[in-house]
């Protein structure tokens, strides 16, 4: 909350909001609609990345890039998944609110009926875990007192245990269908994740009332 006070800063321009492309985009646009943001141009099949909506500039990007832009102040506010924030916890940004959509779970999964996760831990002392979230995985196993070899992959992580690259995977699941179709099953739940609203530290300080007003609109529009 900002209480109007005289400051010598006269910030300029519209606030910039970083919006994630990919799985969160649809629900994010619905949220913006409910917050009275005109998303027509965003919904058009345009290849544009920046949408100037007058009092707000929306920039679209990969979810994992959102903290990078927000930390640097290239975007004032951003929406991204908690999974991204946990993985990039060293980035400095305010985590303002839980927008309560995009529910998923970060899980440890292995091949259905397969014992190699436990066997590797028992006989070899380590489990090999493939993931797109290496820091999340490392922290989780460190906190639970288990030794792992984390293998970072960029693409379909389900492939890793099927080809013998890893004993299991740490990944984000929404419905669990992809796991199921690949003969994998959830072994442990690491944490639940939803979409979060984050903010640049300096924007939070200097953009005062405009900033708080937009945050209130977005929070009010959250399901």
């Amino acid at each position: 909350m900002v209480v109007a006070g005289p400051t010598s800063a006269v910030p300029y321009g519209a606030l910039r909001l970083a919006v994630p492309r990919g799985a969160l985009l649809g629900e994010t646009l619905d949220l913006l609609d409910r917050a009275d943001v005109d998303t027509t141009s965003l919904r058009s099949d345009s290849r544009a990345l920046i949408f100037d909506l007058g009092d707000l500039v929306v920039v679209t990007m990969r979810p994992s890039d959102v903290p990078t832009y927000v930390e640097a102040g290239a975007a004032d506010l951003g929406i991204t998944g908690k999974d991204v924030l946990v993985e990039q916890s060293d980035r400095v940004a305010y985590e303002l609110s839980d927008l309560r959509y995009g529910h998923c779970r970060m899980v440890l999964a292995g091949r259905r009926g397969d014992t190699s996760l436990g066997e590797s831990a028992r006989r070899l002392g380590v489990m090999r875990i493939a993931t797109k979230y290496p820091r999340t995985a490392e922290n989780y196993f460190a906190e639970t007192g288990r030794q792992v070899e984390v293998i970072e992959v960029k693409g379909s992580v389900e492939l890793a245990p099927l080809c013998g690259l890893a004993d299991g995977i740490v990944d984000l699941v929404a419905t669990g269908r992809t796991l199921d179709e690949n003969g994998l099953e959830v072994r442990e739940e690491i944490r639940g994740c939803t979409a979060r609203l984050i903010a640049n530290r300096i924007s939070q300080k200097l953009r005062g009332e405009t900033f708080d007003a937009l945050v209130a609109r977005l929070e009010g529009a959250a399901p």
């Binding site: 909350m1 209480v3 109007a4 400051t7 005062g208």
Partner: peptide, 15 residues
């Protein structure tokens, strides 16, 4: 809950 985001002029304290 609210104090961590309170910022602005001297009235902030009264608020």
């Amino acid at each position: 809950i609210e104090i961590p985001t309170m910022r602005g002029g001297p009235e902030v304290i009264a608020c």
